[in-house]
């Protein structure tokens, strides 16, 4: 297997006496979806904040694309190719859905002038239909910011609300605005923090297909999600966090059979996706 896109080594975050993330090792491979699950307070969002640079780790190291980014500032990491969405929505409320995405596109154009487009970026643009799958980087110059914005809105399926203010959108759609906005930076690594919450069943189904398409571009995806069946269905690897530390890592099947996971969540009962979902719904 090739070198992981993202690697966390013994990352620890302390808030005063409270250890939010405890010596976590985690890796994400390009072109795959990795699930990060665990109860609220297990440290999932804090882990995201550490990866994106919003929270400095107390100890530990992060590598992205083979480079140590432990000390890199947040906006530099975004420019290096890390995009994310937020569990607690962070849309630009006074802007329309289209403008939200446009801000992302415009920002990338400001910092991306010299940067060579990555294969992932080309594949992503091909996925939106803006360029042919066989096209090289030379065609990118002709794409207008507005065109790219509209293509991204179309890709995530929110063209019909493009002119609505983001703070007037229902949660499920607002999450898609955040996704399109994150894609505007043409990330190589995409962090999704409970993207399916607020979506109904059919929306979730469409969303799952979109994630598979995105992973198909070579993008690495780290998915925090309480919809455990969805995680088990999509992810090639799942990491279970509890009290800030990694309880288990492996394929969905391995994790579901893991003794520590079973003990922690379900006593002696064998764990099933349905059972975990049941717990989730009861919380």
């Amino acid at each position: 297997m090739s070198e992981p896109l993202l690697e966390l080594q013994e990352v620890t975050v302390r808030f005063g006496g409270h250890v939010a993330v405890d010596s976590v090792d985690l890796s994400v491979d390009p072109g795959t979806i990795t699930g990060l699950i665990g109860p609220n307070g297990a440290g999932k969002t804090t882990t995201f904040n550490v990866i994106t640079g919003l929270q400095a780790p107390t100890t530990g190291h992060l590598h992205f694309g083979g480079k140590d980014i432990t000390r890199a500032r947040a906006h530099r990491r975004a420019q290096a190719g890390i995009g994310r969405t937020f569990q607690r929505l962070e849309v630009f409320g006074s802007l329309t859905a289209r403008e939200n995405v446009l801000v992302g596109v415009e920002l990338r154009r400001r910092w991306g002038r010299r940067a060579k487009p990555t294969p992932v970026a080309l594949a992503l643009l091909a996925e939106t239909g803006l360029i042919q799958p066989s096209s090289g980087p030379e065609v990118l110059g002709g794409i207008l910011a507005r065109e790219e914005t509209d293509a991204l809105l179309d890709l995530v399926g929110i063209s019909h609300v493009a002119n609505t203010r983001a703070d007037e959108l229902p949660t499920g759609l607002a999450r898609l605005v955040e996704l399109a906005r994150a894609l505007a930076t043409r990330p190589r690594l995409l962090l999704l923090d409970e993207p399916a919450s607020g979506q109904d069943e059919s929306e979730t189904e469409a969303f799952a297909q979109l994630l598979v398409r995105l992973a198909g571009t070579g993008m690495g995806i780290l998915l925090v999600e309480h919809d455990v069946p969805l995680v088990m269905q999509l992810c090639s690897k799942v990491c279970v966090l509890d009290f800030g530390s990694v309880l288990a890592t492996g394929t969905p099947a391995e994790v579901q059979a893991d003794k520590a996971v079973i003990d922690a969540y379900l006593g002696a009962e064998p764990v099933s996706a349905e059972a975990i979902e049941h717990l989730d719904a009861g919380a």
Partner: peptide
């Protein structure tokens, strides 16, 4: 702020099966 909520979330350990976790022998 969102950060404060996250921290609070982390500190309080608002539960997702948390009660069961604590009740179960580890």
């Amino acid at each position: 702020t969102a950060e404060e909520i996250r921290e609070l979330d982390d500190v309080l350990g608002l539960s997702w099966g948390r009660c069961e976790t604590k009740a179960a022998p580890r």
